[in-house]
Amino acid sequence: MDLQLAASVAPLLGWVVHGGILGRRLASARRDPLTGLHTRSGWTARADRLIRRHPRAAILLVDLDRFKDLNDTHGHAAGDAALIATADRLRAWCGRNGTAGRLGGDEFVAVVRDLAVVDLHRLTVALHEPLPYEDRSLALAASIGSCSVAELPVRTLPDALAAADAAMYVAKGRGRRGSRTSR
Rank of each mutant, 00 (worst) to 15 (best):
M1V: 11
Q4K: 08
L5Y: 04
L5T: 07
A7N: 10
S8V: 04
S8R: 13
P11D: 04
L12H: 02
L13G: 01
W15F: 11
V16W: 12
V17F: 05
V17A: 14
G20D: 08
I21D: 10
G23P: 01
G23I: 01
R24K: 05
R24P: 01
R25T: 09
A27H: 12
S28L: 11
A29V: 02
A29L: 13
A29G: 13
R31G: 01
D32I: 07
P33K: 08
L34Q: 09
G36L: 07
L37G: 13
L37R: 10
L37D: 07
L37I: 06
H38W: 09
H38F: 13
H38Q: 10
T39A: 07
T39F: 08
R40M: 09
S41P: 02
W43P: 01
A47D: 03
A47R: 03
A47N: 09
D48S: 13
I51Q: 00
R52D: 13
R53E: 14
R53Y: 00
H54P: 00
H54E: 10
A57C: 13
A58R: 05
L60E: 04
D63E: 14
D63I: 13
K68S: 00
K68M: 00
L70G: 00
A77H: 06
A77L: 15
A78Q: 04
D80P: 09
D80F: 04
A81L: 08
A82Y: 04
R89N: 04
A92P: 02
A92E: 10
R96H: 14
R96W: 00
G98V: 09
D106Y: 03
D106A: 15
V109N: 06
V111S: 00
L115K: 06
A116V: 06
V118A: 01
R122C: 04
L123Q: 02
T124N: 13
T124P: 02
H128Y: 08
Y133G: 08
E134I: 05
D135Y: 02
R136T: 14
L140K: 14
L140F: 04
A141G: 15
A142F: 04
A142G: 02
S146I: 00
C147P: 10
S148T: 13
E151P: 00
L152W: 12
P153A: 15
V154F: 08
R155E: 11
T156P: 06
L157A: 11
A162H: 15
A163F: 01
A167D: 10
M168Y: 01
M168S: 11
Y169C: 03
Y169I: 09
A171L: 12
G173S: 14
G175W: 06
R176D: 00
G178S: 14
R180I: 01
